[in-house]
Structure formats: C-alpha cells, structure tokens
C-alpha cells in the first residue's frame, strides 16, 4: 500500500482526467471506502501505540513490583498489574510490537508461499500433481513434532547468526509460515483452475500474452478476494499460534510478553481479574478486524468493475 503514495495526489482532484494512473485510481477508491479507512486508522493507530507508546509511558514491561500485584486499573497503572506486579499497559505495548510483527510477517510468508504454489499448480498442468501431493503431505504432518524438529535443527545456527531474539523471531515466523500455507494454496489453485478456462483468459492467450504477464495481469487480480480472506484469518492464526508455541517453550523466553501469552496467562484469572483477558483479547480482535476491513477495501479498489461506480 505504500506504493500508492508515489503518485501525485493532486491528480485525483481532477476527476475525469484521462491520464489518471492505475495506482492513484486504486488509492482514490480505497479512500472512499469508509470501512477500509477506519480499518487503516485503527491498524496504524495500534502500530503507533505499540511503537511510540513506550516513549511516553516509560515503564519496564518485565519489572516486578511484587508489593503492587493484582491491582486493578489506577492512575499509576492505567491497565492494572498482573500476578507479579508487572504493569499490564507496558506489557501490552511491548507484547503488541512482537505480536504484530509475528502476525504480519508469518501471514505474508504463508500467503506468498500459498499463492505461489496455488497459481503454479492451477496454471501449469504438469506441476499440479506434484505440488498438490506436496500440499497433502504438509497437511498430514503433525504440527507439534514438526515444530520440535525445526527448532531442534535450526535454533542454534539461527541464534548464532542473528542473536537470540532475532534468531527466535525468524524461526517463529518461518515455522508458522511454512505450516500454514496449504489452505491458501488449495483455494487459489481451485480458483485458478476455473479461471484459466474463462473467455478473457482464452482471449488474452490468443493474442500471445506471455505466461508471466497472464498470471500477473489476468489471473492474480481475480483470485485476490480469497487471498484477502486468507490474509485476515492468517493474522489471527499467527498471533494465536505464536502464543501456543511460546507456551510450549518453543518460542520466545517465558518473560517475554506477547498478546497471545497475556491472554493465555489471563484465562486462569478470568473470574477474579477479567480485565487481564479483555485487554489482549480486544487488541487481537481489533487488529484482525482492521486487517479484514483493509482487505475488503483493497479488494474493492483493485476490482475495475467496482471502481468504475
């Protein structure tokens, strides 16, 4: 989406201008989509809050103040404190950075992998069999032992190369990415199989469009909506999977807050201190909702039939 700002914005003022470029058109349409704009505002708002918040609210997320544990929201601790007296607002902000980064990166990895496999399998008949059997294999592999093996094999080399936190981050996002691309691949393939028999594809082929051009220009834009849905669901999935992995000791160190982990730890205290579950739960839902609306807007914006209206 950052590409969209490259075009001079003033061109959008002159409606009806024939020289309007494709991307400024898309951006105009995106902006006119209320839900998409609201989603974008919330999404970037959360990113700014997690990144810039710690500059204004300077409390260490791992500092334990045992005397003030289990406090409700107050002036000192706007979101209250947890069972060890750690400030929950600070933990939410620190956790947000990690959860957002993991969620978005892992989603992108699985989406790119899934789309690539799906388009190749759907478009090229010779690749369909092998790639889909590979998908079957990945679907069948038991997740937990697979992750254990990945971590066993790659944790130490990655830690050596990127430092402990960088190494774990790369390990987590790639582990989540390579274990969740299969659904997107199957869906994209199914759509491509049907699309490539459509008249416009046959027409494009008859005028000698190259394969790359065909895929980029005609096939991909038409499978965008299921990809967008997969993206939305993928973010939620990645954030939750990260917390499950960290809980099992396969991810970040135990004192490293993430939203999923805060939610998980809070469930035991659901009756006594409900706010501990509500904050991270609402945060995750907000991110997923905003990604969903942005996806809706982007899909509409990229659809020439809707854009014309």
């Amino acid at each position: 989406m950052t590409d969209t700002t490259q075009e001079p914005v003033h061109s959008s003022n002159q409606t009806g201008d024939i020289s309007r470029s494709y991307w400024s058109d898309v951006w105009r349409q995106f902006r006119s989509h209320k839900g998409a704009m609201a989603g974008a505002i919330v999404f970037f708002g959360i990113i700014f809050a997690t990144l810039l918040g710690p500059w204004f609210y300077n409390v260490d997320a791992t500092f334990i103040d045992i005397r003030s544990r289990n406090q409700g929201p107050s002036f000192d601790h706007p979101f209250g404190t947890d069972q060890l007296g750690r400030d929950i607002l600070a933990r939410m902000m620190a956790g947000g950075q990690v959860s957002m980064a993991v969620g978005m990166t892992a989603m992108l990895i699985s989406l790119i992998l899934g789309t690539l496999v799906g388009v190749l399998a759907g478009y090229f008949k010779s690749l369909d069999g092998p790639l889909m059997r590979l998908t079957d294999l990945f679907l069948a592999l038991p997740l937990l032992p697979l992750l254990l093996v990945i971590i066993l094999l790659f944790r130490d080399p990655l830690n050596a190369a990127f430092g402990p936190e960088g190494g774990i981050f790369i390990l987590m996002v790639s582990a989540i990415g390579i274990t969740s691309w299969m659904q997107a691949a199957r869906i994209v393939r199914g759509d491509v199989l049907a699309l490539k028999e459509r008249e416009f594809v046959l027409a494009a082929r008859s005028i000698g469009t190259s394969r790359t051009m065909m895929i980029m220009r005609h096939i991909l834009p038409n499978v965008l909506s299921p990809i967008m849905v997969s993206a939305t669901l993928g973010v939620a999935n990645a954030i939750i999977t990260e917390s499950a992995l960290s809980f099992l000791g396969l991810g970040f160190p135990p004192d490293f807050p993430t939203w999923g982990r805060l939610l998980f730890d809070g469930v035991d205290y659901l009756q006594q201190y409900p706010e501990r579950v509500i904050f991270p739960g609402v945060a995750i839902s907000l991110v997923v909702l905003s990604v969903n609306y942005m996806g809706d807007g982007l899909r509409d914006a990229l659809d020439p039939r809707i854009r014309g209206r």
């Binding site: 045992i66 396969l250 160190p253 135990p254």
Partner: peptide
C-alpha cells in the same frame, strides 16, 4: 515455574547477575 523464573531473574539482576530464561516442554 515461569513466575518463579521472572522473580528470580529480577532478584539476581539486583546483585549484578544477568539471567536469560528458557522454558521447555
């Protein structure tokens, strides 16, 4: 155990000992 780890890490940091935590299934 994870709560204990966090607490002990903090106490040890007060005596100038740095701690990295790890939990394993």
């Amino acid at each position: 155990r994870q709560d204990f780890q966090a607490l002990i890490k903090q106490w040890w940091s007060e005596i100038g000992v740095e701690t990295e935590l790890r939990n394993i299934d």
